[in-house]
């Protein structure tokens, strides 16, 4: 494709990214650096602040479609702290899956792919995209949550009992390295599309059109990185290497969730997340 076509594709994906993801990297950066003119996030650092912060967790959610409303886990007021935190994180994750799905459908050519292949690409790609999306929301001390209204400290997450305390630590380590690449929101949009369009996911029927789509997005990403980050010629290669780390990270996460399902009898896994993680790794 001509570079004008590649730039048009970049613009299209960037617009879709801003349309579907409420907390962008630039917004998160402003919140984390205290440049939001008095609207600081509510800090959750212990059980007392968690109880007080529940209002913020629940007060802004994307519109939920009727058929999705019926699958939301019920509120359980007397549940244990760890299960309560885990349920809230799951709920937000299920919303994020819907956002990533809408973004995915906007990738030119995606909806023309075989329907089974679309399901496989989304199933394998969505947690990798969500993990990457989490990176800009994190710094060494904690992570933004609930559209940036909450900052949950890393120490609080580490203080939860095993195995809950292990759920976020690897993601903080990934985020610290990923954030060094200093991508902007438009780079992230293209990178998400590259992740989704991975032609080596197990069970794909018609790989060629997926690889062709990915090749075009890769060209657009390479062109954009060279244009926006001319002082970092290795950025494209460094970013592609992150895809290997992401797969490892997601495989670990899924193993941990399967372990939780066996050990925590009271734990209720969100049906959408359950569907994604079933037979994943």
């Amino acid at each position: 494709p001509e570079s004008a076509d590649l730039r048009a594709l970049s613009r299209q994906l960037c617009l879709s990214y801003h349309r579907h993801f409420p907390l962008t990297k630039s917004k998160a950066k402003a919140i984390l650096s205290g440049k939001t003119h008095g609207n600081s996030p509510f800090v959750i650092h212990d059980m007392k602040s968690l109880t007080a912060g529940q209002y913020f967790i629940n007060c802004r959610q994307l519109p939920v479609l009727e058929h999705q409303r019926s699958i939301l886990p019920p509120e359980e007021p007397a549940e244990e702290l760890e299960l309560s935190v885990f349920r809230r994180i799951q709920f937000r994750s299920a919303e994020a899956v819907q956002e990533v799905t809408e973004f995915t459908k906007s990738i030119p050519g995606f909806t023309e792919l075989d329907m089974n292949d679309q399901v496989i690409l989304l199933k394998y790609g969505v947690i990798e995209v969500m993990t990457t999306m989490l990176a800009p929301l994190m710094n060494k001390d904690g992570t933004l949550f609930a559209y940036g209204q909450i900052f949950m400290t890393r120490e609080f997450l580490k203080s939860l009992r095993k195995p809950f305390c292990e759920m976020m630590e690897l993601k903080f380590e990934f985020a610290a390295k990923f954030n060094l690449l200093e991508l902007d929101d438009s780079d992230m949009a293209l990178f998400f599309a590259v992740i989704i369009l991975s032609g080596d996911r197990p069970g794909l029927v018609n790989v060629k059109p997926i690889e062709d789509l990915q090749e075009t997005v890769l060209q657009a990403l390479e062109l954009q990185l060279k244009t926006i980050h001319p002082d970092c010629p290795q950025l494209f290669a460094k970013l592609l290497q992150k895809m290997t780390d992401l797969r490892q990270l997601v495989a670990n996460h899924v193993r941990l969730i399967h372990l939780l399902k066996k050990q925590e009898l009271q734990m209720c896994l969100h049906p959408l997340l359950q569907e994604i993680m079933r037979d994943l790794y």
């Binding site: 479609l65 058929h67 799905t101 906007s106 329907m115 989304l122 199933k123 959408l272 569907e275």
Partner: peptide
């Protein structure tokens, strides 16, 4: 596969709220 992934399948088939 779509049978075992009913919710994902439905999300993929739903028209995007942003696009009406």
């Amino acid at each position: 596969l779509t049978e075992r992934h009913k919710i994902l399948h439905r999300l993929l088939q739903d028209s995007s709220p942003a696009e009406g």
